[in-house]
Computed example of a mutant assay.
Amino acid sequence: MPFQDYTLIQAPMAGGINTTELTVGAARAGALASIGAGYLSGQAIEEAVRAARDGGADAFAVNLFIPGEPGATEAQWRAAREALVPCYEAAGVDFPDTFAELPGFDEQFDAMLEARPAFFSFTFGRLDQACRDACRARGIALIGTATSRAEARQQAEDGVDAIVLQGEEAGGHRGSAETRGAGQPLAALLEACGDLGRPLIAAGGLMDGADMARVLGQGAAAAQLGTAFLSCPEAGTAPAWRQALAAAGPDATAVTAAVSGRYARGLANAWMDERAPRDIAPYPDQHRLTAPLRKAAGAEWKSLWAGTGAHRSRALPVEELVATLLKECRAAG
């Protein structure tokens, strides 16, 4: 199924948000659904794809994170670990002796190839030639991510089928190859990248059909929405996260690197103020160090990722939300 069949993409959101029910519902309603597989093992990826197909989702994207910088040095690990001790104490969470490893990219990529989704989307960098060729050989279309014209030009040179332009308004991790890369407003990205000869997917702060129509009018081929789906009952959003979304105001979000070592936008809490650690390990080791705290703590120490449009969230079933978004987009267009 060609990419051009879609104007709405349900964004990949790793960490359990993209449940089978969310993916299947979005696909049935006419969106290009996504499976955020960045933290899944190879086996879990195969199971997620199988469950989505068994549920009736014919075409969808699997999303992975491109490996970046080397892991933390012993000194960086020690400093970041010590800096987090007061955070664990403030949250009333026991400091663990060990921290879980994350699945390796090669294992994840091989599982994705075996599963053969219609689309493979990726973030945090470029996909190498061998991986691109492997996808092409299996008929898997490629969707890269960029946060600047330079990154978008590189993706175009690599021959991807579409490029997600992620504006700084987006919730969750900034998709730049640079872990602390400077963000840009979505409108500026669309204006800067219109001549690259690839379909552009607009992402960042989009919450309704009028937002979709606006970016389509600015040259995007499709709109990718993530935060808009967090309040769907089918999403794997934790109760505290849902409550924070429902209470969010227009200026509710901020950016931090303290959670994972990469810049990410979420509902402002302890990770964005003076309580956050100052010594931060490189991604993904900071993510490993903070994971037990975020899992066990209350809302003040969770990673409540959300974009700047969080205050406009609607708690609708996923199929109703997709139908509403497409109807609003047509009306506004």
Rank of each mutant, 00 (worst) to 15 (best):
I35M: 05
P2Y: 01
L230G: 06
D158F: 07
A257G: 06
A59W: 08
Q184S: 15
E169Y: 03
G197L: 12
A130R: 13
F105A: 13
L326Q: 09
D58T: 15
G333F: 06
R312Y: 05
P233M: 12
A170R: 00
F124N: 02
W77M: 12
V322G: 04
T20K: 05
A80M: 10
S121E: 07
A221K: 09
A210P: 05
A323Q: 13
A100W: 04
P12V: 01
R288C: 02
P199Q: 11
A228F: 00
A57D: 10
S148A: 11
E47R: 14
T147H: 08
Q108R: 08
T256Q: 11
A291V: 07
V62W: 05
C232H: 00
L190F: 09
R78T: 13
D128M: 08
D5N: 14
R180A: 14
C193S: 09
G298Q: 06
D161V: 03
P282Q: 10
E169P: 01
Q76C: 11
R132T: 07
G226H: 08
R275Y: 03
N18C: 15
R275E: 02
A187L: 12
G159T: 11
W301M: 06
Q218A: 15
W241Q: 06
N269V: 00
A203W: 03
S176E: 11
A240L: 13
T290M: 03
E169L: 04
P199R: 09
L84H: 01
R312Q: 14
A210W: 08
V85A: 15
A203Y: 07
P67Q: 10
C131F: 06
D110G: 10
F105H: 14
A257C: 07
A323K: 11
M212D: 09
L245K: 00
A130N: 09
E151G: 14
C193T: 07
E74A: 15
F229D: 00
D58Y: 04
R136M: 03
M13F: 11
L189Y: 04
L186M: 12
P185T: 12
G175K: 00
A323E: 12
A264V: 05
L142A: 08
R153K: 14
A51E: 11
E234M: 10
